[in-house]
């Protein structure tokens, strides 16, 4: 179902939603946007691109005490296509039986089309689009006078039936497509002359040696890339004083793979570096049906060793094997 909401009605609608839900939104921050709770006064726009942090941390915390408690009704506004695709993988991992009851699955997801991109974004190189395709309750396409809103779930449809929404006009769909095309053009331009051989990527990841060694040589195992990755889900379950505690963990840390007695199959950095690529483009697609990288480019920005993940992917081709 598709509806339209004007900018004026949008403001009134979110004030009404705030009575029932905790509203997360992308708040303007230094060098981008950051997830913030809407208190009712701040300006609230859905234009822009992915926030600095991935949306995953609104579904589980980087460090949390696993204590009993009800999930607070919440809505996340402005989830971009890249974060949403990664969230599909995370849901598969956390919600497949036995379900992880601490994953905030009740949180409603309101996606939004990108209207610009970060210099490191490369979703189009992976064959993806800078707008959400699935997994949202509602998706917002910013327009001149408001938002074209599409439902992706029953709950979303119910919300669209509310008094703030109007029927779409004939020209809305055209405007949306035009705007989407524009953003895709910007992304293509910033990634021009770069080719990713997606079809053979799995094969190249298995066979490749030199690229992982060369690019991995400046890795300092800081785990910034996995912490900031929307598709990384690994955690360590520990004993707290009164209950279990979950910490986000990283396959890039040396101790991650170590077993009792001290044996460690990934002592060397190159094998850990390669592990991340294997996980994202080979193992997860094969076992969970979703790739673990969605081209948000945050890891490129965060890397202390100045490793450009996108370039590693591009370099993975037969000539380097």
């Amino acid at each position: 179902m598709r509806k339209f909401i004007s900018k004026g009605s949008f403001g009134a609608w979110i004030r009404e939603l705030k009575e029932t839900y905790k509203l997360y939104y992308p708040a303007p921050a230094d060098k981008g946007w950051d997830w913030s709770v809407w208190e009712g006064k701040q300006n609230f726009f859905l234009e822009g691109y992915r926030p600095l942090l991935p949306v995953k941390y609104l579904f589980f915390s980087p460090e949390e005490s696993l204590a009993a408690g009800e999930q607070e009704p919440a809505i996340v506004f402005g989830v971009r296509g890249c974060d949403l695709r990664a969230l599909q993988l995370l849901k598969k991992i956390y919600l497949d039986a036995p379900e992880d009851v601490y994953f905030r699955k009740e949180t409603l997801i309101f996606g939004a089309d990108c209207t610009a991109c970060h210099e490191h974004c490369f979703c189009t190189l992976l064959g993806d689009d800078p707008w959400p395709g699935e997994g949202f309750d509602l998706n917002f396409s910013p327009m001149e006078e408001g938002y074209l809103v599409e439902s992706g779930s029953k709950k979303g449809e119910e919300l669209l039936a509310g008094r703030f929404f109007t029927e779409t006009r004939e020209e809305h769909a055209g405007e949306r497509d035009e705007r989407r095309k524009e953003v895709k053009k910007i992304l293509r331009k910033q990634n021009q002359n770069k080719v990713l051989n997606l079809q053979d990527l799995k094969k190249h990841i298995i066979e490749e040696k030199i690229v992982f060694r060369d690019y991995g040589s400046t890795c300092v195992s800081c785990s910034a890339c996995t912490n900031i990755c929307p598709g990384c889900f690994c955690f360590f379950l520990a004993e707290g004083k009164e209950q279990k505690v979950r910490y986000m963990d990283s396959c890039q840390l040396k101790g991650y793979h170590r077993v009792a007695g001290g044996a460690n199959p990934r002592k060397d950095m190159t094998s850990r570096f390669k592990h991340r690529f294997q996980c994202k483009f080979y193992w997860r697609p094969e076992m969970q049906g979703y790739k673990g990288c969605t081209g948000c480019g945050r890891c490129i920005t965060a890397c202390q060793g100045k490793i450009d993940w996108k370039h590693v992917l591009i370099e993975l081709k037969p000539a380097n094997i």
Binding site: Y94, C234, L237, C251, Y256, V259, Q278, C279, W283
Partner: peptide, 20 residues
């Protein structure tokens, strides 16, 4: 097979053996 099993439920990722 012995790996570093933490959650035991296929969620935490520690015991990856290839795709398994």
């Amino acid at each position: 097979m012995e790996k570093n099993m933490s959650c035991g439920l296929g969620k935490c990722g520690h015991c990856a053996l290839g795709k398994y």
